[in-house]
């Protein structure tokens, strides 16, 4: 993010400098305004879904759901704790139902429970970001609605290709993270071995 953020801002500001310099401050203020408005809207939605999540936990339904999806979660997120497991399961279920606003707070909790205080994202966290980004959307109602207003004969006829696209992206994403995990573990093992061999140089 430390590289991407300045690039986005520099690209935007440079273009504005040539076409409309007066809009620069205006755009930044509007972006901040939008963020505040979004926070207020999200506060309401998160309160609703966090409350519901806590109900799921108290009734034991969360644990049961986690048990049902355990084989899948174990494959995608090896060595995740019981707690993380539960949040991940909830996140994936919410994503599949198309409840993005319910999925996000559960993912935040999942990432927090996986934090190893190293300041570095673990493989499981990267997997969660990739899965959420490529997750299956069964009903992209926004697009269908917009196509209908633009006079489409059959507004949902792209769904077949859309489902193929999400399935492919999910498979590619999972494969990428798995390959990365393989090499990262190998490297870490090597480093650990090196450190064990040269105890003097470590200080």
């Amino acid at each position: 993010m430390n590289k991407i953020w300045p690039i986005i801002l520099i690209a935007g500001l440079t273009t504005l400098l040539f076409i409309q310099p007066s809009a620069a401050l205006d755009a930044m203020v509007k972006g901040s305004h939008d963020a505040v408005a979004l926070c207020i809207r999200l506060a309401a939605l998160y309160a609703l879904w966090m409350g519901f999540l806590s109900l799921l936990e108290k009734t034991g339904i969360a644990a049961k759901l986690a048990k049902v999806l355990k084989p899948l979660v174990r494959f995608l997120f090896p060595s995740a704790s019981e707690d993380s497991n539960k949040f991940i399961t909830m996140n994936m279920s919410a994503n599949m139902l198309g409840l993005g606003n319910a999925a996000t707070p559960m993912a935040i909790k999942a990432v927090k429970s996986m934090d190893d205080k190293s300041g570095r994202a673990t493989i499981n966290m990267i997997m969660l970001v990739v899965i959420s980004s490529t997750s299956l959307q069964f009903l992209p109602s926004t697009v269908i609605g917009l196509r209908a207003t633009h006079g489409s004969q059959n507004p949902a006829d792209f769904m077949g290709a859309g489902i193929i696209a999400t399935v492919v992206s999910t498979i590619v994403g999972v494969a990428l993270v798995k390959i990365y995990a393989f090499f990262r573990k190998k490297r870490e093992k090597k480093n650990a071995a090196k450190n064990a061999k040269l105890p003097l140089q470590r200080t």
Binding site: I4, K109, I126, V130, S133, V172
Partner: peptide, 24 residues
């Protein structure tokens, strides 16, 4: 997702997410 942690290094999370979406 990382807002409740002190994690600054996201590793390849964003590139992987973008690349797999693009291929899809």
């Amino acid at each position: 997702y990382f807002s409740q942690t002190n994690i600054k290094k996201l590793g390849p999370a964003i590139p992987f997410a973008l690349l797999s979406t693009f291929i899809g």
